[in-house]
C-alpha cells in the first residue's frame, strides 16, 4: 500500500480539488441567496475557453485570467437577468446555460482556432507556479504547499475571505437575508434583488476562475467539455458543507482525495469501479447530510 498512500496522493488531491473549490465558492454565493444554481458547470467551461483565448492572443496569463473574469461577469449578469429579473425557472436556465456553453465553446473552437476537439499550442502561456522560500525545503509539507500554480493559492486565500464576507460583514449579512428572509431586508430599506445580483455576479466570476485554472493551471490546453461535471460536484460540495466555505473546502478535498485514490487503486480493483468512486462518495455524502439534518431536528425538538 506504500505505493498508494504517499505524498503524491496528497499532491494529486490538491490539484484535483482546486477547480472544484473555486467553483464551489461561487456556487455557495447563489446558494445563500436561495438560488439553486446548476449553471456553474457551463460558466466554468466558458471561463476555461476564454482563459485560453486571452492567454493565446495576448501572450500573457494575466490577459487569460482577465478574459475569463470578463466572461464570468457577463455570464453572472446573464444569469441574474433571466433568473431574478425575468423570474424564469433557475433550474431550466442553469441547464440551458450548460448546454449553451458546450455548444458555444465548440463553435468558437472551430471558428477561431480551426481545430476540433482540443486546442493546445506553445503560444498559450500557462499560470506561473509559485515556489515559497523556506517552506519548500521542509520535507512532506514543502512539496505539498510549495510549487503549486497561482490559482491554487488564490483558492486557499479565498476560503477565509469568503467566510469572512458571508458571516462577518454587513454586506454578507444582507446577502444571506435576501435568501432567508427577503421581506425583512426590504423592510430594512435594502433591495434583495441587488444582493441576488451581487451573488450571481460573484458566482460567475469564481466559476470562470475555476475554468481558467483548469485550462491554464491544471493543463495548458482547452478540450471540449473539459469541465467534465466538476460543476455538479462543486454543487454537491456546497450542499454537503451547508454553504460554509471551510466546510465546503473540506468536502472538495474529500472529493479530490477519492478521485486521486481511485486512480491508484486500480491494482487492487477493476478500473470501472475506481472511476465510479467519486460519484459514489457524492451520493453517500448527500445521504449523510440528510441524516445529520434529521438528527439535528430531533435534538431541537
Amino acid at each position: 500500500m506504500g505505493d498508494v498512500l504517499n505524498i503524491l496522493l496528497l499532491q494529486n488531491t490538491l490539484r484535483t480539488a482546486t477547480p472544484v473549490v473555486l467553483a464551489a465558492l461561487g456556487c455557495l454565493m447563489t446558494q445563500h441567496v436561495n438560488i439553486t444554481n446548476i449553471g456553474i458547470e457551463g460558466m466554468m467551461l466558458t471561463g476555461a475557453f476564454f482563459a485560453v483565448l486571452g492567454s493565446y492572443f495576448a501572450g500573457s496569463w494575466v490577459a487569460g485570467i482577465a478574459c475569463a473574469l470578463l466572461v464570468g461577469l457577463l455570464l453572472g449578469l446573464f444569469y441574474y437577468v433571466f433568473v431574478i429579473k425575468f423570474k424564469s425557472d433557475e433550474f431550466i436556465i442553469g441547464v440551458a446555460l450548460n448546454i449553451f456553453a458546450g455548444g458555444l465553446t465548440v463553435f468558437l473552437l472551430r471558428n477561431i482556432f480551426d481545430v476540433k476537439g482540443s486546442f493546445s499550442d506553445p503560444a498559450i502561456v500557462p499560470l506561473p507556479t509559485v515556489e515559497i522560500p523556506l517552506i519548500k525545503d521542509i520535507p512532506v509539507i514543502g512539496p505539498l504547499l510549495s510549487g503549486n500554480t497561482l490559482l491554487v493559492y488564490v483558492s486557499w486565500l479565498l476560503v477565509p475571505v469568503c467566510w469572512a464576507f458571508i458571516y462577518k460583514t454587513p454586506m454578507g449579512f444582507h446577502l444571506r437575508a435576501s435568501g432567508e428572509y427577503p421581506d425583512a431586508l426590504t423592510a430594512a430599506g435594502r433591495s434583495p434583488e441587488r444582493m441576488k445580483c451581487l451573488a450571481s455576479v460573484l458566482c460567475g466570476l469564481l466559476s470562470a476562475l475555476a475554468g481558467a485554472h483548469l485550462s491554464l493551471g491544471y493543463l495548458t490546453m482547452f478540450s471540449e467539455n473539459m469541465s467534465a461535471s466538476r460543476g455538479y460536484v462543486a454543487f454537491a460540495c456546497v450542499i454537503f458543507g451547508r454553504g460554509n466555505p471551510p466546510k465546503v473546502f473540506l468536502a472538495a478535498l474529500l472529493f479530490g482525495f477519492i478521485e486521486a485514490l481511485g486512480l491508484r487503486m486500480q491494482k487492487y480493483m477493476p478500473s470501472d469501479l475506481t472511476a465510479m468512486a467519486p460519484y459514489v462518495v457524492t451520493v453517500v455524502m448527500m445521504v449523510a447530510v440528510v441524516l445529520m439534518e434529521r438528527r439535528k431536528r430531533r435534538h431541537a425538538a
Partner: peptide, 25 residues
Amino acid sequence: LDPVYTDDYEAPDKGKEAALSLYSQ
C-alpha cells in the same frame, strides 16, 4: 509497470494525473 486505465478517451486531466503517478513510480 502495470497499465493505468483512465476509463475516458476524452479527458486530458485524467491522463495527466495517471502519467504523473507512473512517472513517480
